[in-house]
Design a binder for these strands. Structure first.
Lengths: 204, 204
DNA sequence: GTTGTTATTGAGTGATTGTTCAAGTATATT
DNA sequence: AATATACTTGAACAATCACTCAATAACAAC
């Protein structure tokens, strides 16, 4: 009885992620969206309700992808710290040479810095997403401590904040127009910061 | 013969900095500017040319203030490393309790993340400003090395990038809605990162 | 093929965007 | 006081903004 939609909702959302990630919320107009998602205003509003709710869905999808990537590294790498480093490396260098991401910087962080007091729904969603990302890092660090990769007297909650600062800083820095070969050593320096939380080599 | 302008250009620019810093470029409309600077469109355009060039002037003014603050700390603090730490502390905690800044995050970084390919004049200005800020940090680090505060085998250019990552990360993190007492220990952790570049205590 | 249901279309909504400009006003000099 | 200069005003501009809706088209069930 019903008529099947012509467009693929997931594909459309992916396009929305690319657009919003690249241009930000305010600088992305509905004309951009119509063109990029190949949908006319009527369909767009029937499917997503409003520009704001479309953005929220896109942001959630972006975050889900990021969580999924972290999970992948956790399963793939031998230790928790290796997983964290591999995750960081992918975030900062990911897609170099191959398919470039629409922006180096994190879409959630871009939104955090773009949004003001009167975009309240976006603000709170961003804070929630950052909170759960921090929690995921904290749990990963707890495993690293349990495995003896990190000193047992380390406060995982506190270190998780330091790690998030590094991610935000690195990815934002990577958004600059840089000469090649800058990011690798920068990443190495951050890795050695993480290594400084390892247990001291036994002096026995 | 001429008629003196009623408004104070510097004051108007300061207001523009506050507005643009808080709301970003795209989300700040001319209506906002007219109201906040208490100027009608004619005067605004006679004085600043366009929204974009006003933004560029505001951004330059913001950067000049930041450089000035760094210079102040350099003159005030006993050592180069102390100056860097005091600068960082002010950027992250500055104005707490007292007059709050319009945003925790750096206006230049906010612009870096907001601007896309087709805002070219803003893009290149942002990159230039970040470049000179990095250079200033590098020169400060060179002094720290010369004074023996930092190990002589340290690459100041490379460390300057690490420091800029810390600044970007900390100030962006501080933009989140956080419980009190989070930022102090975070700052301490970053300080101890800087301290790890100090010379090793002599084993003699 | 007919019917029922739902997606798609695209012109059109009022509001707001950045910007211009002719008219009016205030001041320093003479 | 008259004049010259330049700043201020605010209405109006075309363009764009996010969004709506009546008309049309397409498909599934019968």
């Amino acid at each position: 009885m019903p008529r099947a939609p012509k467009y693929d909702r997931q594909e459309a959302l992916d396009q929305a992620v690319r657009l919003f990630w690249a241009r930000g919320y305010h600088a992305t107009s509905l004309k951009h969206l119509e063109q990029s998602l190949n949908m006319r205003p009527g369909s767009l509003y029937a499917a997503f309700g409003s520009k704001e709710s479309l953005f929220l869905e896109a942001l959630d999808r972006y975050a889900a992808t990021m969580f999924h990537e972290l999970q992948g590294h956790i399963e793939r790498e031998p230790t928790a710290l290796d997983a964290l480093k591999a995750f960081l490396r992918e975030l900062v260098l990911g897609g170099t040479v191959g398919t470039e991401p629409p922006a180096r910087a994190c879409m959630i962080v871009k939104t955090l810095l773009e949004v003001s007091e009167d975009d309240e729904p976006l603000r709170s969603r961003v804070n929630a997403l950052l909170g759960s990302m921090e929690l995921a890092i904290e749990q990963l660090l707890k495993r690293a401590i349990a495995q003896g990769e990190i000193r047992p007297d380390t406060d995982p909650e506190r270190l998780a904040r330091v790690v998030q600062v590094q991610i935000m800083g690195l990815r934002t820095y990577a958004q600059r127009e840089l000469n090649a070969g800058i990011l690798e050593p920068l990443l190495a320096d951050v890795f050695s910061l993480l290594d400084s939380y390892r247990p001291l080599p036994s002096t026995a």
